[in-house]
Lab assay of single mutants.
Amino acid sequence: MSIQHFRVALIPFFAAFCLPVFAHPETLVKVKDAEDQLGARVGYIELDLNSGKILESFRPEERFPMMSTFKVLLCGAVLSRVDAGQEQLGRRIHYSQNDLVEYSPVTEKHLTDGMTVRELCSAAITMSDNTAANLLLTTIGGPKELTAFLHNMGDHVTRLDRWEPELNEAIPNDERDTTMPAAMATTLRKLLTGELLTLASRQQLIDWMEADKVAGPLLRSALPAGWFIADKSGAGERGSRGIIAALGPDGKPSRIVVIYTTGSQATMDERNRQIAEIGASLIKHW
Rank of each mutant, 00 (worst) to 15 (best):
S128F: 00
G142M: 15
A225C: 04
A276D: 07
V42K: 01
E56W: 02
F58Q: 08
G263L: 06
G141V: 07
S80E: 15
M268K: 13
F70H: 06
A132C: 15
Q97A: 07
D99L: 05
H285S: 05
L282V: 05
L49M: 14
I259L: 05
Y260F: 06
N272L: 12
Q37H: 06
E145Q: 11
D155Y: 01
E270N: 03
G194A: 11
F70C: 08
L218P: 06
V78H: 15
I275H: 10
E119C: 12
A132W: 00
E61M: 09
L79D: 01
T262N: 05
D250F: 03
L199M: 15
T126H: 12
D99R: 05
S68V: 00
K252G: 09
A230P: 00
Y260V: 09
A123T: 07
L73C: 04
L136G: 08
A245F: 09
L188N: 15
T147W: 04
C75H: 00
L49E: 04
V257N: 14
I275K: 00
K213G: 05
L74R: 00
V157A: 06
V31E: 01
M180Y: 02
S122Q: 07
T178F: 14
M268Q: 11
K53G: 14
I45H: 11
V101L: 03
P105Q: 06
R202I: 15
K109E: 05
V29G: 11
F149D: 09
P60L: 13
A123Q: 02
E87M: 10
K252L: 14
R255W: 01
E166P: 13
L188C: 02
M66N: 05
Q265W: 09
F149H: 06
L74G: 14
Q265M: 07
E119F: 07
R162C: 12
K252F: 15
W286E: 06
L111N: 12
S128Y: 00
P60V: 14
H94L: 07
K252R: 08
G114R: 08
A276Q: 06
S51P: 08
P249A: 10
D250K: 02
K53M: 15
G248K: 07
E210T: 14
E102Q: 06
E26H: 13
T126C: 06
R118F: 07
T131Q: 10
T116G: 13
S233M: 14
S57C: 04
N134K: 09
E169Q: 02
Y95T: 13
A133T: 02
G279R: 01
K190R: 12
R271P: 13
V29D: 05
G52L: 07
I93W: 15
R176S: 08
W286T: 07
N152D: 13
P65G: 07
M67F: 13
D113W: 03
A200W: 06
D48K: 05
L192G: 05
H24K: 07
W208D: 05
N173S: 11
M268L: 13
P25L: 09
L137E: 14
G114N: 12
G279L: 04
P105M: 03
A245H: 00
R81A: 09
E62T: 02
I229H: 07
A34E: 06
W227N: 01
A266Y: 10
M115S: 05
R92D: 14
M180K: 02
D48I: 07
S254P: 06
F64E: 01
R255D: 01
A266E: 07
M115Y: 04
V42D: 01
K232Y: 00
S254M: 04
R189N: 07
P249D: 07
A276K: 14
G194H: 14
A124Q: 11
L196V: 10
R238H: 12
L79F: 10
D36T: 08
L199D: 07
L199G: 10
I206S: 07
D129S: 01
D231C: 04
E270G: 06
K71D: 00
S122T: 12
G279N: 03
G239F: 15
